[in-house]
């Protein structure tokens, strides 16, 4: 029993990541409101940032700044990558939201059910 508990705690971060990932994806799939879909998308992307950052942490490691007192550092590499990914995520979210604004101007609604049935599928 205690070993199962140990397994759970030692990979606790991954359970959190998977939970966030699935809930983000679920919101994207299940919601019809275009803004809510983007919120789900942002959640989905954010969970991936944590997926990258968490293996970079080394137990007892400090921030990667060279200093005589420390010899173990966490890996700075994932942080650099995720900084880039955050920028990409912001660009996507900004573009998505501006598309929603334009859709609202043109069609007067941002509910996908109405939009897609009336506009895209009725040829």
């Amino acid at each position: 029993m205690s070993s199962a508990l140990y397994d759970f705690i030692s990979s606790y971060n991954y359970y959190v990541i998977i939970f966030l990932m699935i809930s983000g994806l679920f919101i994207v799939v299940s919601r019809g409101n275009m803004v809510k879909k983007l919120v789900g998308l942002a959640l989905f992307q954010t969970s991936v940032y944590i997926l990258y950052i968490s293996p970079g942490k080394i137990l007892n490691g400090t921030a990667p700044i060279l200093d005589d007192g420390y010899s173990i550092y966490s890996s700075p590499f994932p942080h650099v990558l995720i900084l880039t990914a955050i920028v990409v995520g912001i660009a996507t979210l900004a573009l998505g939201l501006s598309l929603v604004i334009r859709v609202n101007e043109e069609f007067g609604t941002i509910e996908e059910d109405e939009l897609f049935d009336n506009e895209l599928n009725n040829e």
Binding site: M34, G96, L99, V103, E106, L115, F116, L120
Partner: peptide
């Protein structure tokens, strides 16, 4: 309708 197509692609493409 290009706006809707772009939005649709944005969601799927980002996923």
């Amino acid at each position: 309708r290009g706006l809707l197509a772009a939005y649709q692609y944005l969601i799927i493409g980002t996923i």
